[in-house]
Amino acid sequence: MGKLRQIYNRFLDKRIPVARQFQLNHKSIFIFPSKFGWLYLVLCLGIFILGTNYQNNLMLLLCFFLVSLFLLNLFVAYLNFAKISVQLGKTHNEFVGERAQLPLWFNLPKNSTQGPHGLVELGFLRQSAQLQHDLDSNQNPVKIAFVCEERGPIKLPRVTLSSFYPMGLFRCWTHLAFESNILAYPKPVPCSVQLTSQQQSLEPESTQSQESGFDDFDSLKNYRPGEPLYHVAWKQFAKGQGMYSKQFSSSVSVSGWLNLIPCSADVLEVKLGQLCHQVNELTRRGQHFGLDLGHHKIEPDSGPLHQQRCLEALARFSWSAS
């Protein structure tokens, strides 16, 4: 079974290579009578037998009309399906276990009569269809969801599009492999934030500090020009002790580091998940932090862009790279 599946996959890879945009054509379209199509053929055969037995020309005419309609449907179905052109829109990275949305954009010609018609079912290869999209409804994009299961760059499974237009006698389908740059971040594992002041210290000090409020008074420092005047410690200045400015904990950029401790492969994912959680948590608090993954270091910084860089590093992490 697995062998056959492999052969089939290879055949698909050759026939419909990975791309960002697809214009369906004879290479990418498969077409075969649907279940209803077979029922219809059996029906035609039944009418033929009935018509022959009763020597009834009108029955035979009806039968031949239905048969030729079947034949025409083959062409209509194919030509309609071949009008579909679809591309993958902007995707976002997701955490493992979350559903990544794949926005698929269908071409919408200016004149709607020229475009493809009918219902299209969307889903992934070897899975049941997720949703039905009506090509005549002029809605774009169509989002199908994909559950990220493994950390790292995601190789999307092939997206299956199928259509029974115009009369359900034939099923046209295709398995499209979209080029994606979706990264699956490790699944966050809740834990406490463990920042170390140094890089790569084996025993991380628990720096549970700096969790206090935004404007908690922390210490005094020599005043440097440019610092806001309202931070100046006027009490000390009045005592003639010189110009000091107050330092508040939140504005203090405590640059801690998040470290990855070398560990066995089975614990690695949990560790990465914990780091992931901490990155999210620290970003939420707006703190500075750096990420040290051994061979890959990200200098302390804050903000969403920094978070993204860290998460990407975590997503791509593997020991072998070191």
């Binding site: 035979l60 005419l61 031949f64 009309f65 030729s68 309609l69 034949l71 025409l72 209509v76």
Partner: peptide, 16 residues
């Protein structure tokens, strides 16, 4: 589709 199917149907009718 009907207009296209009719000539084919008639051909089949006479030819079969």
């Amino acid at each position: 589709m009907t207009l296209q199917a009719i000539p084919i149907g008639i051909l089949l009718f006479f030819g079969m």
